[in-house]
């Protein structure tokens, strides 16, 4: 971020950028084998962009790790592959399908099955196999109420679990990443960012995004209050309302079985930002995975979710 010349005023985005860069460098310095969790969603794209800035002109000193449910949008996968190549980063993909094939998880059955919950097993497995001791995530505290209590350096026991009642206090700029063998950390450089901050930063830094974030035509099915893209893994059932060629975009990008679209004709950053500014629903309001219960996120986090 550019700052004003001859004045020591720093706007809030520049402060957030500086803080995130500090956290990324601290992660590289305090851990032996960190990794950056990269989903191809806007938050992880911003995090990767900040990592480039943190270590410029060197390459980022950790791989991009993606947990792929196999039910991702094609555009996301394409973006992921292109981006890793462009910045010269190693890309490590953990496949949920492999966890299923190894019998480590059971796939949900029925027409509304989702692999979203299975990701946790594949993630922990990928961490263990590669011996990552810190995983950088794009989670933000404003996203969901259980995340509001998350630390920048979030300690996980040797089962990968989060204990919300036993977290280390974080003061000033000092982060304690000391750990026993087998334990690891999740690190969240974007903790203090809001959805609006992320969008404004993407605009200010001119960061390219997958097309899914912008308006397009798509066949969708209305299911449990979400509008899901019709695909091999989301097949309309009898009695469900189907809409052909709806004008939509996605506010968040995740597994196709639980990422809902919103009606929108926002075609560029300015119109997206205007839409975010007037939104009456939180962005996770489009996520079917958070609707399973009021404490769905808290429960998944305790088990080791992102």
């Amino acid at each position: 971020m550019q700052t004003e010349r001859n004045s020591y005023r720093v706007n809030h985005l520049a402060q957030l950028e500086s803080e995130a860069i500090f956290i990324l460098r601290e992660t590289a310095a305090q851990f032996e084998k960190p990794a950056l969790l990269f989903s191809g969603g806007k938050d992880s794209i911003v995090m990767a962009h900040l990592a480039r800035k943190a270590f410029y002109p060197a390459r980022i000193p950790f791989p991009l790790v993606h947990v792929d449910t196999g039910h991702n949008f094609e555009e996301t996968i394409q973006y992921r592959d292109d981006y890793a190549k462009e910045i010269g980063a190693e890309l490590v993909v953990g496949l949920v399908q492999d966890s299923i094939d190894r019998g480590e998880v059971q796939e949900e059955k029925g027409p509304f099955a989702s692999r979203n919950a299975l990701q946790t097993v594949t993630l922990l497995d990928t961490i263990e196999r590669n011996q990552y001791d810190a995983c950088l995530g794009g989670g933000r505290r404003d996203e969901e109420k259980a995340r509001a209590k998350e630390r920048f350096f979030s300690h996980r026991d040797d089962f990968g679990q989060w204990d919300p009642k036993n977290q280390r206090p974080e003061l000033w700029n000092i982060f304690n990443g000391r750990k026993q063998h087998g334990e690891h950390f999740r690190v969240f450089p974007l903790s203090n960012w809001t959805e609006m901050d992320v969008w404004q930063y993407i605009k200010a830094e001119k960061i390219p995004l997958p097309n899914l974030y912008f308006t397009h035509q798509r066949d969708v099915v209305h299911r449990n209050g979400s509008m899901l893209a019709i695909s091999d893994v989301v097949i309309p059932q009898a009695g469900e309302e189907v809409e052909k060629g709806a004008t939509v975009r996605f506010r968040t990008i995740g597994d196709m079985t639980c990422t809902g679209a919103v009606y929108s004709d926002a075609c560029d950053m300015d119109s997206i930002i205007q839409e975010v500014a007037t939104a009456r629903q939180t962005e996770r309001g489009t996520r079917a995975d958070d609707r399973r219960s009021e404490t769905a996120m808290e429960d998944r986090k305790k088990e080791g979710y992102f």
């Binding site: 505290r141 009642k165 404490t295």
Partner: peptide, 20 residues
């Protein structure tokens, strides 16, 4: 934020909130 807090009507830990 957390389930125990809502059930008991108390706050357990430092929570961070954002507004503009």
């Amino acid at each position: 934020g957390l389930r125990a807090e809502r059930e008991q009507g108390i706050t357990i830990d430092v929570a961070y909130r954002y507004f503009a």
